[in-house]
């Protein structure tokens, strides 16, 4: 994917009421993925905007994955993991937090609105929190419209 294509903004026509953003959520196996499962078990309804990618630990989430998601057409990217202190791997999420600070800066400098990259700690029991998070982010992104990095012709 060349950067010129990536930089081309998506057609404004897509910004209609029926438009559903596409959000890529990275979830850790032990907490936030379980939180998403709990949301399902509790039947907490959410907009059909999010596609979850499972990793074992949020510490595995590489800025490379996040940038790729934006370049491929993500309207938002979510980085999620266990609450601080509860990491299944002791402190992988501490490292996620540190990395995220830098990632956030770079993403903002690229001109991507801050709502499009979000970090959240969600435990395996917090199904409702997971659903609320997805609802909130989706509403924010619907206001913003498609990502400026979304390549043309991508849904």
């Amino acid at each position: 994917m060349s950067s010129e294509v990536a930089a081309a903004s998506a057609p404004a026509a897509a910004k209609t009421d029926g438009w559903e953003p596409k959000i890529v959520a990275f979830c850790c196996n032990w907490c936030s993925y379980g939180g998403a499962d709990s949301a399902g078990m509790g039947r907490f309804q959410q907009p059909a905007s999010t596609r979850i990618i499972r990793v074992m630990c949020s510490g595995r989430i590489d800025p490379l994955h996040v940038f790729n998601a934006f370049l491929e057409g993500a309207d938002a990217v979510l980085v999620t993991g266990c609450h601080i202190g509860d990491c299944h791997y002791v402190n992988g999420n501490d490292k996620t937090k540190i990395k995220y600070k830098y990632l956030e800066n770079v993403v903002h400098e690229l001109g991507i609105e801050k709502e499009r990259l979000q970090l959240n700690w969600i435990s395996a029991s917090e199904g409702e929190k997971f659903a609320n998070f997805i609802r909130d982010v989706t509403a924010q992104i619907k206001k913003l419209g498609p990502s400026p990095l979304k390549p043309e012709g991508v849904a």
């Binding site: 596409k22 890529v24 595995r60 590489d62 490379l64």
Partner: peptide, 30 residues
């Protein structure tokens, strides 16, 4: 957990079953 993998600056570390190309295949096919 793969935390070291995300930190490796040269890409010498990979996490089996969660390799970069495997994860990026998912990202791309969203």
């Amino acid at each position: 957990c793969g935390t070291c993998v995300a930190a490796c600056p040269t890409g010498a570390l990979e996490q089996s079953h969660f390799k970069n190309d495997q994860l990026l295949a998912q990202v791309k096919n969203v």
